[in-house]
């Protein structure tokens, strides 16, 4: 029993890292552009399918294919942003969020059915030669692929953190998130920054999706669930802190694991949503960082 509990905690942490990665993308886009992209889960899904395609068509190792997946998602991000979201960044904040929400749902419907046409409704996953490998520590199993995914998630988040903290462009992104008007008075082209933030967000979603396709499985209907996961984690972790978001992801993963253990696996999604609602209701204004409202 004891080992089982530790085992599910470990699994919770491993999947939580992906939750964190998924949420960082959403939160970065929301924080900088104030666009709530509810098609984020579908973008993540496309990251998964890209990896799956590269693997099945060309036999490229999914981890080695990550850069290609990222480039693919960046391209999608540029198209989606340029075609849809760029039109809305200038609207007043309230209409902007409302309209992006609706457009996001339209987009998720399109992407979802596109995936259905391209890859059918079957569950897909990338199964490599080493997919079954695992090491055991004190009776607890550590699947190699998921541990590697944790490492990659940490590396990606670390790289993003360094980029935002240390580079001039990163600082410009943070400045724009804080106050776009002041940022443009610094000579920052905020529309380029918006595009950049959006594309960074989709790239993060792409990596997360790739890792999901390797360690778990993907299917065309997964988008909404992942969007909600990202939203929950964003709420738990607060806006603007990458570390906070990552920890939020782990917290959600562990909570889900504990729920599976004590209540039943079928309710693992419900717990996250309940926490989300409680936070929404009890601190509605402090939600996405205290500054936003």
């Amino acid at each position: 029993m004891h080992v089982m509990l530790v085992q599910s905690l470990v699994f919770g942490i491993l999947v939580g890292a992906l939750y964190g990665l998924a949420a960082v993308g959403l939160s970065l886009v929301f924080g900088v552009t104030k666009l709530l992209n509810v098609a984020h889960g579908e973008l993540l899904m496309f990251g998964g399918y890209a990896t799956f395609w590269i693997f099945t068509l060309y036999g490229v190792d999914p981890f080695l294919a990550l850069p290609v997946t990222m480039i693919f998602l960046i391209l999608i991000g540029v198209i989606v942003y340029g075609l849809l979201f760029a039109r809305m960044v200038k609207l007043s904040e309230e209409t902007k969020i409302q309209n992006t929400l609706l457009v996001g749902f339209g987009l998720s419907l399109i992407l979802q059915n596109l995936a259905l046409r391209l890859w059918t409704a079957d569950d897909r996953g990338v199964t490599t030669a080493y997919s079954g490998w695992a090491f055991t520590l004190l009776g607890v199993r550590f699947p190699i692929v998921r541990v590697a995914s944790l490492g990659i998630a940490l590396a990606a988040l670390g790289a993003l953190h360094l980029f935002l903290q240390k580079t001039y462009t990163g600082k410009a992104i943070r400045a724009t998130a804080e106050d776009w008007e002041a940022a443009s008075l610094m000579g920052i082209d905020i529309h380029r920054i918006y595009l950049l933030a959006f594309v960074l967000g989709t790239a993060m979603a792409g990596i997360a999706g790739a890792l999901v396709s390797v360690g778990y499985s993907i299917e065309p209907n997964m988008g909404l669930e992942w969007t909600l996961i990202a939203l929950i984690v964003m709420v738990l972790g607060g806006l603007g802190s990458i570390m906070g978001t990552f920890v939020g992801g782990i917290v959600l993963g562990v909570t889900q694991a504990l729920t599976s253990c004590f209540i039943g696996g079928t309710y693992r999604e419900v717990v996250g949503l309940l926490i989300f609602l409680l936070v929404l209701i009890f601190r509605p204004q402090g939600l996405f960082g205290a500054k936003e409202r």
Partner: peptide, 21 residues
Amino acid sequence: PEGGKIFTGMSVLENLELGAF
């Protein structure tokens, strides 16, 4: 701008660096 509109979440030096963007 009115009220200064400095970037409160960033350090003083970072604010100045952004001035030289």
